[in-house]
Amino acid sequence: MPTAPFADALTPDADVHPHRNKLMTAREAVDRFVDDGDVVYTGYSTQVPYALTHEIIRRRRRNLDVVGASLGPQVTQLVLAGCCSRVRTGYISGALRPGPLTEMMASGALQFEDYSNGAIAVMLMAGAMGFPFVPMKWFLGSDYLKPENRAHAASFLGEAKWRVIDSPFDGDRYLALPALRPDVTMMHFQRADVYGNVQGWGALGDARWALWAAEKVIVSVEEIVPTAVVRRDPSRTLVPGARVAAVVHAPGGAHPTAVAGYYDSDYSFIRLAALAYEGRDQFDAFAAEWIYGRPDRAAYMGHLRERFGDAWIANITPAPPLPPLAPIDYSFAPHLGWMDDPEGE
């Protein structure tokens, strides 16, 4: 995997006020910022924060209400590890095969609310901006709106989930969904500085507004870079560090999902791991090997290489590098004086 010249520069910046230095370990971040019962937002199908997910499992958080536009197996892991009792999402990836997760949904042991990607995406915007709700056309005409479906046995929002309203301006019909303000948003990106200015590139799914909407933001990154790196290319910053509670240096932190420029999705691992979601015993064995048995992400990545070999790692390593074809230039003129019109009097 590519390594920038800054890879080892974990404390490159002098004079960082301790209140503005957000760099900490995953364990410290979870200890300080994830509480039992929190509404935790986690990301879309690339750059999934598996390092942080596994830390939550090791720290044995309980009764989390996990939200995401589309969730991957990270939510299945949180549920089967006993950390999560509620889920709100539009999709759970890996064509949901019958297993403990679907059994818990059927029995009501796992409470859930069905949404769509778009609905959750715009609820985050409302949450970020302080709007009370967002009116939209999605779900109109669907069976989601049938009262008996809203009030299903494993539902927990009831009337608070949504309401059909008429626009006060033209009387047109809309579905009003309340703003979404997660207690915690956790995500994984390419890089950040110690101030928490987090930079990511490539298609971002639901990331940007999930960062803005949350009370507490925890990000893990492939690289910690000197703040000068960020400040020379600030268009790539997704949310200002002042909105970020914790930055965790966790190379490989999204494996087995992809991080553009660092590693691709590990479909072979995803396929193997899927077997773990088919039964409690299988999951316990998986968790012992990959979660409880590895104290942090470095140990996990070491185990990945040791267990599967260099060829496996090479198979998910991007090639060739694809930097921008033209440099980005933010230069400006200093304008230290007023110009005189040569034809003026």
């Binding site: 949901l96 019958p98 990607n117 609905a119």
Partner: peptide, 16 residues
Amino acid sequence: YASPRRRLAGTGGNAD
């Protein structure tokens, strides 16, 4: 919906 024979992965952005 209340007692499905099988739950699918979900709608994602399809419904939208």
